[in-house]
Computed example of a mutant assay.
Amino acid sequence: MSKNILVVGASSGIGYAIAQNLLEKGYSVISASRNNPNIEGVEHLTWDATNPDANVFANLPVALAGVVYCPGTINLKPINRLTLDDFRQDFQINVVGAVSVIQAVLPRLKKAEGASIVLYSTVAAKIGMGFHASVAASKGALEGLTISLAAELSPAKIRVNCIAPSLTDTPLAQNLLSTPEKKEASNKRHPLGRVGLPADIAEISTFLISDASSWITGQVIGVDGGMGSIKGV
């Protein structure tokens, strides 16, 4: 019997790639997002991180082997132009939304007798980047949530890990990669010479969901072309 995985935010970008990757590897995938990803074989639930409704998950399978929470924000402004509502929205989507999903499906994760939760931070939570105050603050909180939940849920054999990508070529990053010049400049900022692709993140996400990573929990893993740890030559 295939394992049931809930992918929140599967309608585009990284979440879409993850849902496809999991499906190809034989998992049973349920999508939850505002828009239907329209992936054949994927059951879809309409859910919005800005107004989370736990009742949406009431009819999920009894046992859930994993949750992948992909919703995110890129709200880049100088601190004097960031409003309190900007901060509230980033925390709502990145942190509160994740908490609401985990709380709603936790009994089902416990029934799996070995489940995995995968969350997403950003390289900007580790290294200082101008104009990233709001997103870095909320994603930094998500890293703290990851480590705390990994400790709390370890007796239930539920693993919790976080992936911290750098700039990835998704619809969310469209404005940052909108011209060949912008894309080339972004490529050059990464030691490996390119921005990320959804497939890069999908592969490690699937690994963290799988039993192959059964001894990995409480980790924040940089998948960032080297930006977070090395300086290019």
Rank of each mutant, 00 (worst) to 15 (best):
L76S: 13
S134P: 07
E152R: 09
S166Y: 06
K157R: 14
A98M: 05
L145Y: 04
F207K: 02
H190G: 00
S229E: 09
A10F: 04
V8Q: 01
T170N: 05
F207I: 05
S138T: 06
N59M: 14
V96H: 03
Q20S: 07
V160I: 06
I158P: 00
G232M: 07
G228V: 08
I147F: 15
P37T: 07
P198T: 02
I117Y: 05
I93K: 01
V68R: 07
I221R: 05
P37E: 04
Q89N: 14
S2R: 12
T73C: 12
N4A: 15
N36K: 06
K77S: 08
S28G: 05
S166D: 14
S11Y: 04
L84Y: 13
A98N: 03
I147K: 14
A58R: 15
Q92N: 11
H190A: 00
E24L: 15
N187W: 06
D48G: 04
P191E: 03
F91S: 11
A49V: 07
A115D: 03
G97V: 07
I163A: 05
G226S: 02
Q174I: 14
Q92S: 13
V56Y: 06
L172P: 03
V96K: 05
R34I: 01
T179D: 01
M129I: 12
G66R: 08
F57S: 04
G218H: 04
L208W: 01
G140H: 02
D224A: 13
Y69Q: 02
S28W: 06
S213D: 04
N51C: 14
T179A: 01
E152K: 07
A141V: 15
V195K: 00
A124M: 08
D48N: 14
A141R: 12
N175D: 13
N187D: 10
N36E: 04
G218T: 03
F131Y: 15
H44N: 04
Q20R: 10
S11V: 09
S214C: 14
A185H: 08
Y69C: 06
G9M: 03
G140Y: 03
N35G: 13
R159L: 15
G114W: 03
D211G: 13
I79N: 06
M227L: 13
N4Q: 15
G232W: 04
D86N: 12
G128I: 11
I102P: 00
I209G: 00
L208E: 04
S138E: 00
G9L: 01
A136S: 10
A58W: 10
I147G: 12
N38C: 12
K183A: 01
E184F: 00
A133L: 09
V67H: 05
L176M: 14
P107R: 04
I39V: 08
T122V: 09
W215T: 01
P171L: 03
Q174E: 15
N21H: 12
R189I: 08
L208D: 05
A164P: 08
S229C: 12
G218V: 02
I209M: 08
S178K: 11
V233A: 12
N80M: 15
N175H: 13
R194G: 03
I204G: 02
N38A: 08
C162E: 04
S2P: 10
A17M: 06
G128W: 09
V233T: 10
F131G: 11
P52I: 15
G114V: 01
S28D: 12
V68S: 06
I204T: 07
T46C: 10
V8P: 00
L176Q: 02
P180V: 04
R108T: 11
N4W: 10
Y16F: 14
N187F: 09
L197Y: 08
